[in-house]
Amino acid sequence: HNGKLCKLKGIAPLQLGKCNITGWLLGNPECDSLLPARSWSYIVETPNSENGACYPGDLIDYEELREQLSSVSSLERFEIFPKESSWPNHTFNGVTVSCSHRGKSSFYRNLLWLTKKGDSYPKLTNSYVNNKGKEVLVLWGVHHPSSSDEQQSLYSNGNAYVSVASSNYNRRFTPEIAARPKVRDQHGRMNYYWTLLEPGDTIIFEATGNLIAPWYAFALSRGFESGIITSNASMHECNTKCQTPQGAINSNLPFQNIHPVTIGECPKYVRSTKLRMVTGLRNIPSIQYRGLFGAIAGFIEGGWTGMIDGWYGYHHQNEQGSGYAADQKSTQNAINGITNKVNSVIEKMNTQFTAVGKEFNNLEKRMENLNKKVDDGFLDIWTYNAELLVLLENERTLDFHDLNVKNLYEKVKSQLKNNAKEIGNGCFEFYHKCDNECMESVRNGTYDYPKYSEESKLNREKIDGVKLESMGVYQILAIYSTVASSLVLLVSLGAISFWMCSNGSLQCRICI
């Protein structure tokens, strides 16, 4: 991952900044910058967002509201009850120091605090018919004063009620008058409520006091790749198909172990950190130390980045220098085999997901714990399936590479015959000098055995068991695999060879 928040398929997220979902939807004055928000790819909250409900109280069923919003990608904020005409018999300019803005008392931008007009609070009834052709999110509140005197001074009615009804919602609220500790300079409380109004449905408000009335509502448009994440990451000019709280993932790998919460087309989250597919040879310690064997393909974004291909070729060293050249036929066979294998694994496992966190309130801790156990169970199954699949494929890959290298080895052996000696570690020792032209003939299969047989015969008789390297004779190393990324691999195959001279070296080696 890149540690950044990015656009998702070209669409920017909605960053709530210092506000949370509650503050944004109710219209906390400190969240005025969010009022123009219309569309987004996903919503970003920060872990310690401080601006929620400015007048103390709870947004009821907040967790369910977050779940609903996680599939919303755009909205239209509109005046559901026009301020100047909807409440002619009531005062609608209630403000509070708890919702101060720029040093002055204020109130929510989407709600109206209705109080008595003169000395009376006549029963009010108002309704709205949803003609938007889509779901409408309606929010309101109920004020709970701290004393009967406060109730009387604001609403005149000691036994007030609030009723809200639609086809799918029907509740009646009565204020709970009680002494409470002071929070944000208030002994009173406000509880906030919401409902989704279906197209064509009607919502009716009736009250004799204590109503925090809707002013603006939201017509919602769903987008199934949307979601809500909690993150401290910063926004950058970048684009992605998959976003996590820790950063964007741009990967076609089937798995990731970065974060379980994802938005967009994302690899499946697994616990494993070692889900690797081999593309090189079986481990040979001396070669492995030099980083030549054991190439791997990573299938977990965050564990290993991208696929690494092994390729086969020849390396030689003689009086004229040293050089490398790919054996294109065996390399292409290996590439085709690995590509098919990788595609097979991805096809089997690479279903892209959006995974969002589930919200539970403080009273639902047991449910949250149960949900976590269920999620953990599914996660263990996914991890096991992934590891088992790759384990089985790896064994076949190792066998496949062994065969490829063996074929190259036999190709060289059949040409050199007794003009060189096998020394048991995949290397041959020449009994004759071999210049670049000679080396090329070994690589392309045109090695002239009779041409060098007499010199080889004489050297075999002279050496008589002495280690060949100390006599200045020449080696050919018969097994060799270097490691390159897919891009470098293609470039390498396009070149005939490249040279690395070893000044004054008397050794001649050709490596497979």
Results as ranks from 00 to 15, higher is better:
residue 233 A to P: 00
residue 234 S to I: 12
residue 234 S to D: 10
residue 236 H to S: 14
residue 236 H to R: 07
residue 240 T to D: 10
residue 242 C to I: 05
residue 242 C to N: 09
residue 250 N to G: 06
residue 251 S to M: 04
residue 255 F to W: 11
residue 257 N to F: 06
residue 257 N to K: 08
residue 259 H to C: 08
residue 261 V to A: 02
residue 261 V to P: 00
residue 266 C to L: 09
residue 267 P to W: 04
residue 269 Y to H: 12
residue 270 V to F: 01
residue 273 T to E: 05
residue 274 K to N: 09
residue 277 M to Q: 05
residue 281 L to K: 04
residue 285 P to L: 05
residue 287 I to F: 09
residue 289 Y to R: 12
residue 290 R to T: 07
residue 298 G to C: 07
residue 306 G to L: 04
residue 309 D to H: 06
residue 309 D to P: 01
residue 309 D to K: 08
residue 314 Y to H: 04
residue 318 N to P: 07
residue 318 N to A: 04
residue 323 G to W: 02
residue 328 Q to K: 12
residue 339 T to R: 14
residue 339 T to Y: 13
residue 339 T to A: 15
residue 340 N to R: 14
residue 340 N to A: 03
residue 342 V to I: 15
residue 342 V to A: 03
residue 342 V to H: 12
residue 351 T to A: 15
residue 352 Q to C: 09
residue 354 T to F: 09
residue 358 K to D: 01
residue 359 E to D: 12
residue 361 N to K: 09
residue 363 L to Y: 11
residue 364 E to I: 08
residue 367 M to Y: 05
residue 375 D to P: 06
residue 385 N to A: 06
residue 390 V to K: 14
residue 392 L to R: 05
residue 395 E to F: 04
residue 399 D to V: 09
residue 400 F to V: 06
residue 402 D to R: 09
residue 402 D to L: 14
residue 403 L to D: 07
residue 405 V to H: 09
residue 406 K to T: 06
residue 409 Y to E: 07
residue 409 Y to D: 09
residue 417 K to R: 15
residue 419 N to R: 00
residue 424 G to F: 10
residue 425 N to D: 11
residue 426 G to S: 03
residue 435 D to N: 15
residue 439 M to T: 13
residue 441 S to A: 14
residue 443 R to G: 03
residue 447 Y to A: 05
residue 448 D to P: 04
residue 456 S to M: 10
residue 456 S to P: 00
residue 458 L to D: 01
residue 459 N to A: 07
residue 462 K to L: 09
residue 466 V to D: 01
residue 469 E to T: 13
residue 474 Y to S: 09
residue 475 Q to P: 12
residue 477 L to T: 13
residue 480 Y to F: 06
residue 482 T to F: 12
residue 484 A to I: 11
residue 487 L to Y: 03
residue 488 V to S: 01
residue 496 I to F: 11
residue 501 C to W: 11
residue 504 G to V: 08
residue 508 C to S: 01
